[in-house]
Simulated scan of single mutants.
Amino acid sequence: MVLFVNGKFCKNPKLAKADDFFASGLNIPGNTNNRLGISAIVADVNKIPGLNTQGLSLVRLDYAPLGENPPHTHPRATEILALAEGTLYVGFVSSDEDGNRLFAKLLKPGNVYVFPFGLLHFQFNPNRTAPAVAFSALSSQSGGTITIAKSVFGSKPAINPDVLTKAFHLDRKTVELLLLKNA
């Protein structure tokens, strides 16, 4: 009988080996030469089989000067971020009966910030000359990421522009341009 937990095969504990609980490479900077100026090196259950059922994962985040991890959510995790190098402006938005409230902070090395489960959040390197490095732990073996702009303006097929025009209070030409840029 094969048993799957959280979508992953459960290995017979008698067949487990040290490499099932090991990953390397988080000391190596990622390539930030992209449109957003960010690299995410993920150490989750897909890279470390021993994380299956453990409820956690780790990510190394490298930010180029002015690089950002755009507004996104983790549908299956709370995130805690520790800044190792540089400066980051981070924040999340709560939504309750009083409306949408921004909680934001400028982080320096050694600072830690928590992004509560499922809430919209971001990180931005405001420095024009120096990179930043952070490590994030997520309370899931596979927290998932939903990047808001990419999801809304980059879905296949595209969301009807009339829906987006009304939802974002934008003119149709702007919506169509955003849809083209994210296609």
Rank of each mutant, 00 (worst) to 15 (best):
E68L: 15
A82Y: 08
E79I: 09
I80V: 15
P75L: 12
L88Y: 03
Y63F: 15
P65H: 10
E68W: 07
T73M: 15
V59L: 06
P75M: 14
N52C: 06
E79R: 07
T73Q: 15
T53P: 02
A64P: 00
D62P: 09
V45S: 01
F92E: 10
P71K: 14
E85N: 08
I48E: 04
Y63W: 11
N46W: 04
T73D: 12
E68K: 11
K47M: 13
D44I: 02
G55C: 00
V45H: 00
L51N: 00
F92N: 07
L61Q: 10
G55A: 01
S57R: 00
K47P: 02
L81F: 08
F92R: 05
G55F: 00
E79Y: 04
A64M: 07
H74C: 13
T53Y: 09
L51G: 00
P65K: 10
G50K: 03
L51S: 01
T87Y: 07
N69I: 09
T87K: 07
G67L: 10
E85G: 01
L58V: 09
L51R: 00
L58E: 02
V90F: 05
A77I: 04
L66Q: 06
N52G: 01
T87V: 04
N69R: 10
Y89E: 11
V90A: 13
R60N: 05
V90I: 14
G86T: 04
I48R: 00
L88I: 08
A84W: 08
N46A: 13
L83F: 08
I48A: 04
H72K: 15
